[in-house]
Structures are given as C-alpha cells and as structure tokens.
C-alpha cells in the first residue's frame, strides 16, 4: 500500500515537474513581456505542485528527498505524461500543450480534493486555485488566437492536430490508479475523460478550431515508465549538476 501511494505521488509530481522544466526553457522567448511574466507564473505554480507531491512521496521512504527524486532518478522511473515532454516548438505548442493539461488538471484536482489522504487532498486544494487561473488564461489565448488572424488560427489548428496523439494517455488508468481509486485516495482518469472532451471541444468550437478525429496511437505510457525521445535530453540537462557533483549540496 505504501509502495502504491509512493508510486501514485510520483505521477502527481512528475507531470508538473517536467512541464515547469519546459516552461523554464521558454524563459525570455515569449511574444511579449507580459506573456513572459504570465507563463513564468504558471511554471512557478507547477514547480510548487511538483515539489509538494515529490516531498510527500519522499517522506514515504526512508532517507529520500524531493531533490533526489527530481535530480537523481532514472528516466524509466519517471511517471510524467508524454504531452508535457514535447518541446516548445513555438508559442502554439507552448499554449496548446498548456491548455490540454490545464483542462486535465482542473478536472483531476477537483476530484482529488476529496482524497481520503489528507496530504494529497491538501495539496490538491491549494493547486486547484492555481490551475483554475491557468485554465482561464490558456482558454482565453485559444479563443483570441483561434479567432485572430488566418495565420494564428492555422498555427493553432496544426498544433492541435499534432498534439492530439498524446491525449489518450491522460485517461489511462493502470493498476496503481485502480488501487488508489478503490482506496478513496486517488481518482480514476477514465472518469474525467468525457468532461475533458466536452470542455476542450466547446472551447475549440468557440475559437473556430476543430477537434481532430480520435485515433488511438500505439504508445507505451509515461506512468508505465516509457517516455518520448525528448525526455532523455530534458533530464540530461535538468539533472546535469547533481549528477556531475554527486557529493555536493546546493
């Protein structure tokens, strides 16, 4: 049970961690200064969520810290979604990726607030306030750029089509999810799927964009320890110093 809870906390922490890493990479590259500020805000919130969940995960083991989990774990032990590993190809990628995750986080944390595990419920209650604001912002951008110029509409549509292959993973439950859901600690991802599609489809419609056809891709998912080709490079960069100086404290 403790091992499952530990595993569960890793997946709660890893997705925000990897996404905040991508957002950090985008620093000073936004279309204008206001957006640099806003996106960094989102990155900071996500980093805080990651830290909270990883700290909780580490506390379930003896002599383990959140930093060790973030900076010394092997790729196959990470549990993040493929979607957040995708690089910042341009602002459309940064935005659409964020919008998809924001909708997911809103639904997910809303349910997770009722977790029987007090720590998880507590972190979720704090996080839900943050991700509500994230969603407002990304949804607003989807509408503005969807209804903006022909080019901005086109760029968003192309990106939506490209990233759609990573959506199925959000709603996949493995044994750990099932066990945690049964215990009343976790949330079934399958059950938020319909709501996710409703919100996303409505927003895309309002924005003059369309949802692609839903074809399941053959993928091995992050929570089972399989990642995109992008992930190795992301971790190599993020973990560079702690791995190079294993005895150092920062």
């Amino acid at each position: 049970m403790n091992q499952s809870l530990y595993e569960y906390c890793l997946r709660l922490g890893d997705t925000p961690l990897i996404l905040s890493q991508r957002i950090g990479e985008y620093c000073s590259k936004a279309p204008h200064l206001e957006e640099d500020l806003a996106i960094t805000n989102v990155g900071l919130d996500l980093l805080g969520q990651a830290e909270n969940f990883l700290t909780y995960a580490a506390s379930l083991k003896e002599e383990l810290t959140a930093d060790e989990l973030a900076f010394k774990r092997k790729e196959k032990d990470f549990r993040s979604f493929h979607l957040v590993e995708v690089p910042n190809i341009d602002f459309a990628y940064v935005l659409v990726r964020q919008f998809f995750i924001d909708v997911y986080h809103n639904l997910f944390y809303t349910s997770l607030c009722n977790s029987k595990d007090e720590t998880i419920a507590g972190i979720s209650k704090k996080s839900i306030k943050e991700v509500r604001y994230h969603l407002q912002r990304s949804q607003d951008w989807i509408i503005r750029l969807g209804q903006g110029t022909e080019e901005s509409n086109h760029r968003l549509q192309v990106t939506i089509n490209e990233l759609w292959m990573y959506i199925d993973e959000l709603f996949y439950d493995n044994e750990i999810d099932n066990e945690m859901t049964k215990e009343g600690i976790g949330v079934s991802n399958r059950e938020i799927k319909n709501n996710w599609f409703n919100i996303v489809t409505d927003t895309l419609n309002d924005a003059g964009l369309s949802s692609p056809e839903n074809i399941p891709y053959t993928l091995q998912y992050g929570k089972d320890g399989f990642h995109t080709e992008y992930m190795g490079y992301l971790l190599a960069e993020m973990q560079h110093l702690p791995l190079l100086y294993p005895d150092a404290k920062w």
């Binding site: 950090g24 500020l37 960094t40 980093l47 960069e237 110093l241």
Partner: peptide
C-alpha cells in the same frame, strides 16, 4: 541556468527572480 538549477528550491528562486526582472 534555469533549466540546470541543481535543486527544486534554487530553481524556484531563480524562476521567481527572472520573473521579477521581467516585471
């Protein structure tokens, strides 16, 4: 160095600092 900050805490502090500078 934001993507290479060696701890979660230092990453958060640096990110917040850079955000301050944008402000």
């Amino acid at each position: 160095w934001l993507t290479r900050a060696p701890s979660l805490r230092s990453k958060k502090i640096l990110m917040a600092k850079i955000q301050d500078e944008a402000g």
